[in-house]
């Protein structure tokens, strides 16, 4: 500690660091606040909004190119006859994904994050004002394609659902453990391609369980339709829990 000013530094009192009489000295202020406190506050508000309306909200996370949007349009086609659905799309740029969702006939809103690599809870709150999702609806939030940053930002969702496609490495769960730890469900997508790949399914599932022993796993293909019924049943069961 500096013996002259007690400011915690090791330094000489050169003119650059002089303490002129009359200037207010420095002091310490205790903060003890989580850096994500503000996001968590907005997330709690969103969660209250969803609970009041008995909505099921799923935060879909994955790396780019895992087939999230295709899976989502297929899921919507299967659910929309008897379920109210709304979608929030997050991407850095363009409204291409929201246009793909809108083509299914359900309301979709695009959030462009610009330089941001993830969606934040405050942006979701603002989106709700214009999207006006119906009570007891299912809201899908398709996060920015990124297996790192979205893991730390709670949006108020009931569950994070991580989508991993078999065209990626089976070691993704241990390479990006935070995301697989934060998710409650993992969808292993594009399994129709397994005959053409060296992807080790058992090893992948073991890695996912190693990072998160409680994670549920459904293997499916948005293209062939395999496994989609199980995914649909999972959504229905979760929806029943919100009522």
């Amino acid at each position: 500690m500096c013996g002259v000013c007690g400011c915690g530094d090791q330094h000489q009192h050169s003119p650059k660091h002089s303490h002129i009489l009359g200037l207010s000295p420095t002091r310490m202020v205790k903060i003890e606040q989580d850096i994500l406190a503000k996001n968590n506050h907005y997330a709690a508000e969103n969660r209250r909004y969803f609970t009041e309306r008995q909505m099921l909200v799923l935060n879909l996370v994955s790396s780019p190119g895992s087939g999230k949007t295709t899976l989502l349009t297929e899921t919507i086609e299967r659910l929309k006859a008897d379920t109210e659905i709304a979608v929030i799309e997050g991407d850095q740029q363009t409204s291409r994904d929201a246009e793909r969702i809108s083509a299914t006939g359900v309301p979709a809103l695009q959030i462009n994050t610009g330089k941001g690599c993830h969606l934040e809870a405050q942006r979701i709150g603002l989106a709700l004002d214009s999207l006006q999702p119906k009570a007891q609806s299912v809201l899908f939030i398709e996060n920015v394609g990124n297996l790192v940053c979205p893991s730390g930002f709670d949006l108020g969702e009931a569950h994070k659902v991580v989508i991993l496609s078999v065209t990626e490495g089976e070691d993704k769960p241990i390479k990006y453990p935070d995301m697989f730890h934060a998710a409650n469900l993992m969808l292993l997508n594009k399994i129709d391609l397994l005959p053409y790949l060296d992807f080790d399914v058992e090893q992948c599932l073991a890695y996912a369980k190693q990072v998160n022993p409680n994670i549920e796993i459904i293997q499916l293909s948005a293209k062939s339709g395999q496994g989609l019924e199980e995914w649909q049943t999972w959504i229905k069961n979760q929806q029943a829990l919100q009522a």
């Binding site: 400011c7 420095t26 310490m28 202020v29 003890e32």
Partner: peptide, 10 residues
Amino acid sequence: QMRIKQLEVA
């Protein structure tokens, strides 16, 4: 954790 512990202010 990622926390703001304290500040030195003037």
